[in-house]
Amino acid sequence: MEQATVKWFNAEKGFGFIERENGDDVFVHFSAIQGDGFKSLDEGQAVTFDVEEGQRGPQAANVQKA
């Protein structure tokens, strides 16, 4: 698992990007966020996640709020 920071997340559209420590951004979809209830992330929030290869490149999976 990697630890990184949420760059931005649009709760209405259900997706955003996580900024990795190496500077690369990773796409995150609300369905990858672990937990119950409304799944959203806040800008600047610390998260841990795995990286999977998606249809359009790397994307976050198993996202957990740190």
Rank of each mutant, 00 (worst) to 15 (best):
M1Q: 14
M1Y: 11
E2H: 14
E2Q: 14
E2Y: 15
Q3H: 14
A4D: 02
T5P: 03
T5C: 13
V6T: 04
V6C: 07
K7C: 06
W8S: 03
W8Q: 04
F9Q: 03
N10S: 12
A11F: 09
E12P: 03
K13M: 12
K13P: 02
K13G: 04
G14C: 06
G14N: 01
G14P: 00
F15K: 00
F15N: 01
G16A: 05
G16P: 00
G16D: 04
G16V: 03
I18P: 00
I18T: 02
E19K: 15
R20Y: 05
R20T: 08
R20S: 06
E21M: 11
E21P: 13
N22W: 11
N22C: 13
G23K: 10
G23R: 08
G23M: 10
D25S: 11
D25K: 10
D25A: 10
V26E: 00
V26N: 00
V28G: 01
H29C: 08
H29N: 02
H29P: 05
H29E: 03
F30E: 04
S31P: 01
S31V: 05
S31A: 06
S31Y: 05
A32K: 08
A32F: 05
A32I: 03
I33M: 04
G35N: 07
D36V: 12
D36Y: 11
G37S: 07
G37L: 06
G37A: 07
G37W: 07
F38M: 08
K39S: 06
K39Q: 09
K39L: 10
K39N: 07
S40T: 14
S40A: 10
D42S: 14
D42R: 15
E43G: 13
G44P: 00
G44D: 04
Q45W: 10
T48R: 11
T48L: 12
T48A: 07
F49G: 02
F49E: 01
D50G: 09
D50A: 12
D50V: 15
V51L: 11
E52T: 12
E52A: 10
E53A: 10
G54Y: 05
Q55M: 14
Q55Y: 14
R56G: 10
R56H: 12
G57W: 05
G57S: 06
Q59S: 07
Q59F: 11
Q59A: 07
A60D: 03
A60P: 02
A60S: 03
A60L: 01
A61S: 10
N62T: 06
N62M: 06
N62F: 08
V63Q: 04
V63R: 00
Q64L: 10
Q64Y: 11
Q64W: 11
Q64K: 12
Q64D: 06
K65N: 10
K65F: 11
A66V: 15
A66L: 15
A66S: 12
A66T: 13
